[in-house]
Each structure stands twice: as C-alpha cells, then as structure tokens.
Amino acid sequence: MQIEMEICFYKAGIQSTIQDLGRYPYLSQGVPLSGAMDSLSARLANIAIGNSEELATIEFTYAAASFVAETDLLIAYGGEGVLLITGNLTLPPYRPLFLPKGTMVELQNNNKGARTYVAIAGGWNAPTILASKSTYLTAAFGGYHGRTFIAKDKLKNDKNWSDGTLKLFNQLQGKEPKFTKWGILAKSFLPDDNSIRVVPGREFSWFTSNSILHFVSSSYKIALNSNRMGLNLEGAAIERSKKEELLSTAVAPGTIQVTGNGNLVLLMTDCQTTGGYPRIAQVAAVDIPRCAQLKPGDNITFKYISQENAEQLYIEQALDINILKIAINDKLQ
C-alpha cells in the first residue's frame, strides 16, 4: 500500500536536483559517481521516515527555494543549509513531518551550511538511468530530465513504501502540519573537532616538507568557483619537490589534487573518474559530507590520520547507522 504525493516548485532555488547515493557500476566507462554531496544527511532524512537510505532525495543548494504541497505529504529533511518553515512554524530537521495539502514550505537560510536534502515517503519519482536516479548535470541525464528544477515543475513520490512509513503517515495525518516527538540527533554522527581528517595521498612525498606543514597548519578558504565536481581551495600554494609528470590514474570523491600552479582542489561526487594532478591527501569518507556543507568563503583545516583510522571511522559510522535503523524500526512497529 502506498499513497501518491506531489509537490510543485514555487521558487526552484539556486541548484536543486534529484540525488540518491550515486552510480558505481559505470565508473569504468568514465561516468562519475554522482549522488548526494552530503550523503549522510540524505541517508538520515530517508531513514527518519522509514525509507531505505538509498531512495532519491531532492538536494537543495542554499535557500531561495519554496514548494507547495499538492497533496498531503510525509517528508523529512536533513543537512545544514536551511531550516524549512511554513508560516510561522519552523519544521525540525531529521524528523518525520506531515504537511497537509496546500501547505507552502519555504527554505530559510541559516548560514550554517550549503546543502539540504528533502526525502519523501516512498522516495522521489525519477527514472533509473545507469543504475541511479541521480542527476548528472554535465551530461544532462538522470533525475528530473537531467536538469535542475525550475519554478512550476511538479514532482511525485515513488512507490517504495515500507510498513513503517505507512504507520507514520496514519499516525501524523490531519488538517495541520504535525511532526513526531522524536527525531534523529544528526550531530551524534559528526565529530566535535572542525578539522577535516585526511589520509596522506599517493604523491604525498612529491611536495616540499614546508608545503606539507602548511597544508596541515594553515587554513584554506573555499573559492567561489566550487561546485559538485570539486571545491577549489584558496590559501598557501603547495610547492613540489618532485617535478615528474603524473600519468592520469583513478581519483575518487575526497581526493585532494594539487594543480600546476600549486592550488588545491578537493574532488566531490561529480568529479571525473581519472585525473593527472598529484594527490596530496584523501579526505576520510566520513568527513566528505562535512565538506559538502562548506560554502564559498568558509575556512577549512586539515588533520592527518592513518588509513587504518579512516577505515575504522567508516566502520563505526556504518554500525551506528545500523543501530539507528533498528531503533527507528522499533518505533515504527
């Protein structure tokens, strides 16, 4: 059993696209991973309403967006970019939200982050292209006709309803916006420390020791020309001690490349599958979602950890998310 839901964009926002957790199987054919920049927030938003974590969400960039509920809605949102409000009511993040037909929802800037993920009961409806519903703007495929949303676009939900989702809907349904007393404490998945943890990259030894010291002791500023492919970082230039050319090889989201003029580029989820710039570091997978929330002008600092440590952090987070899923499942019984 599932219930059809639909929204209509009133203001579409700066860059609003459909994203799930990306498309791995086509990396060998040069197709980027794509998917939610802040995959943690997208997963938690889905989990909050009893969805599978990999269902399609809407990724909003900053605020300046609003949508109208064309039907009753059961949604949840995550990410640090905005707060969702309706009238005078602030809707809490990471929590199941019921909104009756006709509700106007606005995204209000809170200056904390860059991206917000809205999940809907059953996931958002979009064709599966190359094993994913994610939008890849560069090649204009995936998501909603391969593009960002514009005003008046309408979007329906999909039919992947779990029993728990249905129970939530029945529990919250009414004439007024309503949400549960419980929610997910997203902070518990993030470290207190602001530094982004990185593992030394393959070409780490190609840089002068002074530059490496700079890399971990000074802060870098997110440049204006940053996007889903990568964050350009402004700061002390990194000098090379080894002038050798690197033959292009595989890169991945989280790879920090040093360009010819010594600038840093932190690759994000729409990045190319191969690259030819030497790699000074690889961001720990658990910290990539935090990078996705950085805005132009924000500062970033790095801290080296070991490969083993990065792996351990990943495993701990995966186990924590599993526990969360079990706990929510229990609530929805």
């Binding site: 791995y24 990396l27 060998s28 090889t249 191969t274 995966a318």
Partner: peptide, 18 residues
C-alpha cells in the same frame, strides 16, 4: 567487489568496505 577503473599504468578496484 564493485567495479574497476583502468588507467595508463594502474587498475583501481572499488569495493564495499562492510
């Protein structure tokens, strides 16, 4: 095992850690 990416002198193997 998930997939591989070939390059000039490297083969990169992607996998699911869990």
């Amino acid at each position: 095992f998930k997939t591989t990416v070939s390059a000039y002198t490297t083969l990169t193997v992607f996998y699911n850690l869990m």
